[in-house]
Deep mutational scan, measured.
Amino acid sequence: CHSECLGNCSQPDDPTKCVACRNFYLDGRCVETCPPPYYHFQDWRCVNFSFCQDLHHKCKNSRRQGCHQYVIHNNKCIPECPSGYTMNSSNLLCTPCLGPCPKVCHLLEGEKTIDSVTSAQELRGCTVINGSLIINIRGGNNLAAELEANLGLIEEISGYLKIRRSYALVSLSFFRKLRLIRGETLEIGNYSFYALDNQNLRQLWDWSKHNLTITQGKLFFHYNPKLCLSEIHKMEEVSGTKGRQERNDIALKTNGDQASCENELLKFSYIRTSFDKILLRWEPYWPPDFRDLLGFMLFYKEAPYQNVTEFDGQDACGSNSWTVVDIDPPLRSNDPKSQNHPGWLMRGLKPWTQYAIFVKTLVTFSDERRTYGAKSDIIYVQTDATNPSVPLDPISVSNSSSQIILKWKPPSDPNGNITHYLVFWERQAEDSELFELDYCLKGLKLPSRTWSPPFESEDSQKHNQSEYEDSAGECCSCPKTDSQILKELEESSFRKTFEDYLHNVVFVPRKT
């Protein structure tokens, strides 16, 4: 048989008469490798580009789960590009990614509803959504962080984005990388972005840091009482949809009607710091009717980097990364020049730590249904340095008659930039024990000054392991946590139920 035959053949030295091919099969003959313009397919066939392209389009058009959109890589027609490569849609070739590779997620039936953290986790790592997304989240724990972890990498949506009755959302900033909504599939009414009845939605994105392009379709905003109209108009300008909307697409009466839409800028007039305090004062603000001013709200939190936005980490279910302080308005003076500047002394802060701070007014709604208010920009203030805590785990070892090696770990709280350490030492008198000992005694162990690591005695271990207080009263049991108490109650309830079950099964009433 021919060298490319495997198993047997019907005619000697003829690659077209093989029972099976050793390498690849091409047009009725066995070959060692697939010549151009053919590609290896499933490690035994040679196919042309049209064959591989037909497989790709067949799966793409069917949208069946589990099928493969075949691509070409290293002269092979394979189910998908290997790690580190992405497909070129024009020629199906796998090309190296520039940075992290995109991950295209194809949605069944063309859309997916995100109504819980669990459903959001199914899209973790996706960068391109081939379909439409509907966000409908009523509640949950730590929602802002969970949504950002699972949806934060999405850069492109081919269909539309719909935010509907998501009472738990305060902001859409968890879509931190969303840059493009194509609108290839539109919501009824030709809408590519749809926001309806979101009672706590206050911000779409921080438009000073976020760009969003909507290729096709219109915007729809109705019944978002805490979303200011200025935020919607800003989205029109940034996304390129200005002029597409009709009169009733953006409701003037049901958007922002319960919001404090600040239209003035508060400026800080005085800032002073110490290692654990920050004193702030800002310019006074009074609405047209000074009785509408209820006070100020001061927001602050630790910020290692200057990239904080107002609604980071917030949701309507209680999660809030900001510390909020309510401040009463100052006494009002008739003389504008003698107006008191409101302020606040922030206490209990960490030394040498940068804080993000902003302040906003708290006002009631005027009778004319106009909203007044003022808010400052987010500023960054760093507390002063102070003395560091003591170095940890000092170790001293003498390696000769004239040297001592000293080692330690950095302090747990540096409280500033540590530039150097101060080492103090003092000579001590020799131990009298060394002169009084009889060095001729056998088995004498000389006193040693070398360091030995501390260890816990058996008594201390027994005390720590004991669940009861000892007789001397030195140790006591740790208080039980809520989960331990709940577990004990469940076990007790189970024992009672099981005992009742045994009584009912074992003891049967005697027939009379």
Rank of each mutant, 00 (worst) to 15 (best):
V104W: 14
L107F: 08
L107Q: 05
L108Y: 07
E109F: 02
K112L: 13
T113Q: 15
I114H: 01
S116Y: 04
T118L: 04
S119Q: 05
A120W: 03
Q121E: 08
Q121S: 07
E122K: 02
L123K: 00
G125S: 08
C126H: 00
C126K: 01
C126V: 01
C126W: 00
V128Y: 13
V128C: 08
I129K: 00
I129S: 01
G131I: 00
S132R: 02
L133C: 01
I134G: 04
I135L: 05
I135G: 00
N136V: 12
I137A: 08
R138D: 03
G139V: 15
G139S: 15
N141F: 09
N142M: 08
L143R: 10
A144S: 15
A145L: 13
E146Q: 08
L147D: 00
E148L: 06
L151I: 05
L151W: 03
G152C: 10
G152T: 01
L153V: 13
I154E: 00
I154Q: 00
E155S: 10
E156A: 05
E156I: 11
Y160G: 05
Y160N: 07
L161G: 00
L161N: 00
K162L: 12
R164V: 03
S166H: 02
S166T: 11
S166P: 01
Y167N: 14
Y167L: 09
S171H: 15
S171F: 07
S173V: 07
S173Q: 05
F174C: 12
F174M: 06
F174Y: 14
F174I: 14
F175A: 02
R176F: 03
L178R: 00
L178K: 00
R179A: 10
R179D: 03
I181N: 00
I181Y: 00
G183A: 05
G183C: 03
G183S: 03
E184F: 13
T185R: 12
T185D: 08
E187A: 04
I188A: 09
I188K: 08
G189I: 01
G189T: 05
Y191A: 10
F193A: 02
A195E: 00
A195S: 09
L196V: 14
L196S: 08
N198K: 00
N198G: 02
Q199C: 13
Q199K: 15
N200S: 09
L201E: 03
R202V: 12
Q203F: 03
Q203D: 13
L204T: 09
D206E: 13
W207Y: 04
W207N: 04
W207M: 06
W207D: 06
S208R: 08
S208W: 10
H210N: 03
L212Q: 05
L212D: 00
L212M: 06
L212R: 00
T213F: 06
I214K: 00
I214R: 05
T215F: 09
Q216L: 09
G217Q: 02
L219M: 12
L219E: 01
F220R: 15
F220L: 09
F221T: 06
F221S: 06
H222W: 09
Y223S: 10
Y223A: 04
N224P: 00
N224T: 05
N224M: 07
P225G: 14
K226V: 15
K226G: 11
L227E: 00
L227A: 02
L227P: 00
L227M: 11
C228Y: 04
E231F: 14
E231Y: 01
I232F: 01
H233N: 06
K234T: 14
M235L: 14
E236V: 14
E237S: 05
V238Q: 10
V238G: 12
S239W: 03
G240N: 04
G240E: 06
K242F: 08
Q245R: 10
E246F: 11
R247Q: 08
N248S: 11
N248I: 11
N248Y: 11
I250H: 06
I250S: 08
A251N: 14
L252K: 10
L252T: 10
L252E: 04
L252C: 14
T254G: 13
G256R: 05
D257H: 09
D257I: 05
D257S: 02
Q258M: 05
Q258N: 03
A259W: 08
A259H: 15
S260D: 15
S260Y: 02
S260Q: 07
S260A: 11
C261I: 04
L265M: 10
L266K: 00
L266F: 07
L266R: 00
K267Y: 15
F268H: 01
S269T: 08
I271K: 14
T273W: 13
T273L: 04
T273A: 07
D276M: 03
K277L: 08
K277G: 15
I278T: 02
I278V: 14
L279I: 05
L279Y: 15
L280V: 15
R281A: 07
W282Y: 00
W282R: 00
P284C: 03
P287C: 14
P287I: 08
R291N: 12
R291M: 12
D292K: 04
L293R: 02
L294A: 06
F296L: 03
F296P: 02
L298V: 07
F299D: 00
Y300L: 09
Y300I: 12
E302R: 04
E302K: 09
A303T: 13
A303M: 05
A303C: 02
P304A: 15
V308N: 04
E310S: 10
G313C: 04
Q314L: 14
D315Q: 15
D315M: 06
A316E: 15
C317G: 11
C317P: 09
C317V: 06
G318A: 03
S319G: 10
N320K: 04
S321D: 15
T323P: 01
T323W: 14
V324W: 12
I327F: 04
P329M: 06
P329Q: 14
P329A: 07
P330R: 11
R332S: 09
R332L: 04
S333V: 07
N334G: 12
D335T: 13
Q339K: 13
N340V: 14
N340M: 03
H341F: 12
H341P: 11
P342C: 06
P342E: 06
G343P: 01
G343C: 09
W344C: 04
L345C: 05
L345D: 15
L345P: 05
M346L: 10
M346E: 02
M346N: 01
M346Q: 07
M346G: 04
G348H: 05
G348Y: 02
K350P: 02
P351N: 03
P351M: 02
T353W: 03
Y355L: 01
A356I: 07
A356S: 08
A356K: 02
V359Y: 02
K360D: 02
T361I: 05
T361L: 03
L362E: 05
L362A: 07
T364N: 15
D367H: 11
R369C: 09
R369Y: 14
R370T: 12
T371P: 10
A374D: 01
K375L: 14
I378T: 11
I379S: 07
Y380H: 01
T383C: 04
T386V: 09
N387L: 04
P388W: 07
S389V: 03
S389L: 09
V390S: 03
P391Q: 02
P391Y: 02
P391I: 04
L392M: 15
L392D: 05
D393G: 03
S396K: 10
V397M: 12
S400P: 04
S400R: 11
S401Q: 07
S401N: 15
S401H: 08
S402H: 12
I405N: 13
K409L: 09
P410A: 15
